[in-house]
Nucleic acid binder design. Structure first.
Lengths: 201, 201
DNA sequence: TCGGTTCTGGCAGACTCTGCCACGATAGTC
DNA sequence: GACTATCGTGGCAGAGTCTGCCAGAACCGA
């Protein structure tokens, strides 16, 4: 048993990538809901049964192979919290994600366009956000001041709000591609919240 | 052709209500994903095919007959905006919803418990929130100050954030049923946002 | 009571996803 | 180079949601 990565694993990885490519292309052409798994499989020259050995669900073929924009966000947040307040820490943490996205803007634009063709996909995307939120809340909670009884509620509000800012900025940027900078939109979104009732620049 | 509501429509309404009751009961006992539509139908003494004539989807049997907590929220928001700032207007608008919920707390608790048994349901619920947000954004946007180019982005952020506050307070209240007041949780959540970086009481 | 509308149930089908099993290819071993 | 064990693959059957279609039953107004 050698330590080398077997030829089979490489083949597997290659096929996985090809499936993701084929699927994304078909989704762009016909829409997500209008593209059955059977079509993806036959276009790629495999059986539908095999497709489900590479991707557990049809959604996973879209979201499964995303470039790692996130990294260890809880750790990153933790680090910022040693220097900054809760909100600014969330801001800087998500700026980091935004910077990573910018390096592959083309791919992300295609993805977002596909996601917007389907209600079920939007819902699935939100589900992912919630998982991310669950991982950030325990990290943020200790940094919240005030009564302990409300600490958890506050932490949840702030984390969800931060992710909302990110999502909104992301969509806005995707809609005005080229015209604005993702980071600028993100900063605007984050600046809006603490000034919620005046909402000036 | 009389103006009266035909006996058939009343029968239809009654059956619809019975289906919703049966479904909610079964969901509580076994969980949402573990309760096929066939079981709901047979328990209610109808065919599965007929079930789908009363509710377009399985989800609709849960969410379709909610008591109207919302009313005309855009109009309500519009009204508050004549006197208050954007954030406080959103706050008061959602306070109104929270008050309505309180009058039927039992029903809502049951619902939330069922929703938490299933991932797919949570996602569906978020989808509804987004629809509500879409209706509030155009109302809020004109009240936002600052550069026009960013007005839409800001409005989206604020509306989504407000709904997030509502949702978080709602969940928190449901988890601590009896211990806290829904309105108090809501106020705390809304107060957290403008003080995002100090987060004091 | 009659004629037309409406509701119902059953059938077949699409689509996602999951077990199961047999077949073939591959990898490591002798 | 042949042998065996492991792995990937494809086909089959099935659950579950949801839709179109059609024939029969129930209902309403005249």
């Amino acid at each position: 048993m050698g330590e080398s990565i077997g030829i089979r694993e490489r083949a597997r990885g290659a096929l996985r990538g090809e499936l993701a490519d084929v699927a994304l292309r078909l989704f762009e052409e016909r829409g997500y809901d209008e593209t059955p798994v059977d079509d993806i499989a036959s276009t790629a020259g495999i059986s539908p049964r095999t497709f489900y050995r590479y991707f557990g669900t049809k959604e996973e073929v879209l979201f499964g192979d995303l470039p790692p924009t996130s990294g260890d966000l809880p750790a990153l947040l933790q680090d910022h919290l040693t220097r900054l307040g809760p909100w600014e820490s969330l801001h800087q943490t998500l700026r980091h994600v935004a910077e990573n996205i910018r390096t592959e803007r083309g791919r992300w634009s295609r993805l977002l366009r596909v996601v917007n063709t389907s209600d079920s996909l939007r819902a699935g995307h939100l589900e992912q956000q919630m998982n991310l939120a669950q991982s950030l809340i325990p990290t943020l909670a200790p940094a919240i001041q005030g009564q302990a009884a409300w600490r958890d509620l506050r932490a949840r509000v702030l984390v969800y709000t931060a992710l909302t800012c990110f999502d909104t900025a992301f969509s806005h940027w995707a809609e005005h591609e080229g015209d604005i900078e993702m980071l600028e939109a993100l900063d605007i979104a984050f600046a809006t919240v603490p000034n919620a009732d005046s909402a000036q620049s």
